[in-house]
């Protein structure tokens, strides 16, 4: 295990009080000759809700993968609530309050809806290796059922995930990201493939999140993105080239040309 995990509690607490939720400094990620991210610097305050927009291949998902630790950046630093997590494995970042959803649902198809959510709750608490079965009244079992309720899946809690519809799987995807005590969530195209009605539900779920939970959302649907975000970052070719309020971004001529006007990216 990383030596960086050994860190005084007081240091972490004091850092968490004042620091930005997420801070990327000069993050670069290269895959061989291809630069997927070039010198990306982003600062997101606690509770801030940010949309990241950009055409396909702009590096948005790579950015998420670097933040969650699916792979390490080639250079640059990533700070989570003031703590340098650049070299942390993914599970250590998650235990510090980071969550994410995936563009293509990554669920446990051989398990039931309840088991999926229960695992998510268990992953960020003690007893991950427990060989004892949970009992009905356990706190984690309760919170799993509450989460299932929150994403409107209560009726099918005991159904295997492989039998769920696409929309239901997307809802479950969000439930997994909200387990435990999330402090910052990365949503990777949560609205992709949803019906208009399901999109409305998604916007409702996102806007109803407790105000201390900040997030970054990648979304192609501008209706969704601009309604749930307070600030917007525009990406192109692995760089952030513009940041601002939704209204500024919408009216920016450069953005219009690159993204909004140029057909659907």
């Amino acid at each position: 295990m990383s030596t960086a995990t050994v860190r005084s509690v007081s240091e972490r607490l004091s850092a968490a009080g004042t620091a930005n939720a997420l801070e990327l400094r000069g993050v670069t990620k290269r895959f061989g000759a291809l630069a997927a991210l070039t010198d990306v610097t982003i600062t997101v305050k606690p509770g801030e809700r940010r949309a990241v927009l950009g055409s396909n291949g702009a590096g948005k998902t790579t950015l998420f993968n670097c933040v969650t630790g699916d792979f390490l950046p080639t250079s640059g630093t990533i700070r989570l609530f003031g703590e340098d997590v650049t070299n942390f494995p993914a599970h250590e970042r998650i235990r510090r309050g980071l969550r994410r959803t995936y563009q293509i649902s990554l669920l446990f198809t051989g398990l039931t809806v309840f088991d999926n959510v229960y695992l998510a709750c268990r992953g960020v608490s003690r007893g991950r290796f427990s060989m004892l079965r949970p009992r009905k009244g356990d706190t984690l079992v309760q919170s799993a059922y509450e989460l299932i309720e929150a994403v409107h899946l209560s009726d099918i809690a005991q159904i295997k995930v492989s039998e769920l519809s696409y929309g239901q799987q997307r809802q479950l995807e969000i439930a997994l990201a909200l387990a435990g005590a999330p402090r910052f969530v990365l949503f990777d195209e949560p609205a992709a493939g949803l019906s208009p009605k399901e999109r409305a539900e998604l916007v409702e779920i996102l806007t109803n999140l407790p105000s201390h939970i900040g997030y970054i959302i990648i979304e192609h649907d501008m209706d969704v993105a601009l309604r749930v975000a307070e600030t917007v970052s525009m990406m192109h070719n692995g760089r952030i080239f513009k940041e601002g309020l939704p209204s500024e971004i919408e009216s920016d001529p450069e953005v219009q040309e690159l993204y909004l006007g140029g057909g659907h990216g």
Partner: peptide, 25 residues
């Protein structure tokens, strides 16, 4: 059906997601 066994089945289905839920795969 205990957390350890469930987590193992989760890892079988999707190790990357298990890491993203806070499990040391």
């Amino acid at each position: 059906r205990a957390p350890f066994g469930l987590a193992l089945q989760g890892i079988r289905d999707n190790p990357r997601r298990m890491a993203a839920l806070g499990f040391n795969v």
